[in-house]
Design a protein around this nucleic acid. Structure first.
Length: 229
DNA sequence: AGCCAGGACTGAG
DNA sequence: CTCAGTCATGGC
């Protein structure tokens, strides 16, 4: 049964919240920018930052680099951590320019991830955000919500590192085999987890039976209250 | 009035 | 090598 748990929970999330249609952005490069700005930051603040940035400069790697640190930091101020994020944005702009200058059709996903992780300011989650939502690669994004929910459902262990968790999800979701199907599935799944966390758990609704979104579910709950607390 | 957001790096021990 | 400290605004 546990083998199909990941797919089961996906169906429950989908029927509860509907399709999310991530990533909210006007361009692929905007996804890259957003993935850095949203690090440990509410998306609402990221929207403000991107809006301000668009007012002072076209959303293009070359223009952002020409902007300089101070002007960039000032524009993205609402997203918090504006000084480090300005540096990180400049770093990922360099990477992006390099990326766009090459033929990437034959590169495999793992080598792209490695090159992303070499960029200072790009950790495993941000790298996977970029891989999935900007580059359309089939990788499952792990965030703090994912950890908490599935740990309290008793499906994953607390001491698993990022890679182990990612592997668990990717191998558990075996029904979709074609790359394009997996991209769609992983895209929606991560978005639904975030949606669920924000809409339901933060509002402290008495979801218990619903940690898995369903009354009387059979998972081994670690907590009786909302599994996100 | 705190608490915490769609994390990641650094420096101490 | 682990791990606490650091970065910082805005919404609830």
């Amino acid at each position: 049964m546990v083998v199909f748990a990941a797919e089961h929970i996906y169906r429950l999330l989908l029927q509860t919240h509907g399709k999310q249609g991530w990533w909210p952005a006007d361009s692929v490069f905007e996804v890259v920018i957003g993935s850095v700005l949203t690090q440990n930051t509410a998306w609402k603040n990221v929207e403000k930052a991107i809006l301000q940035l668009k007012k002072v400069c076209p959303l293009d790697a070359h223009y952002i680099l020409k902007l300089g640190h101070d002007a960039l930091a000032d524009a993205i101020r609402p997203s918090g951590y504006f000084n480090i994020k300005a540096k990180r944005l400049r770093n990922i702009c360099e990477w992006w320019i390099d990326w766009c200058s090459q033929d990437n059709s034959s590169k495999n996903t793992d080598e792209i991830r490695k090159s992303l992780l070499k960029v200072n300011g790009i950790g495993p989650e941000t790298a996977d955000d970029i891989l999935l939502y900007a580059l359309g690669r089939p990788v499952f994004v792990i965030d703090t919500y994912t950890r908490r929910i599935f740990e309290r459902l008793g499906l994953v262990e607390a001491d698993w590192n990022y890679e182990t968790l990612r592997q668990w999800f990717e191998t558990s979701l075996a029904t979709a085999t074609a790359d394009s199907d997996r991209v769609q599935l992983f895209n929606e799944y991560h978005a639904l987890i975030v949606k669920h966390a924000k809409d339901i758990c933060q509002k402290k609704q008495p979801l218990c039976e619903q940690c898995c979104l369903q009354v009387g579910c059979s998972y081994a709950h670690r907590s009786r209250s909302c599994h996100l607390n």
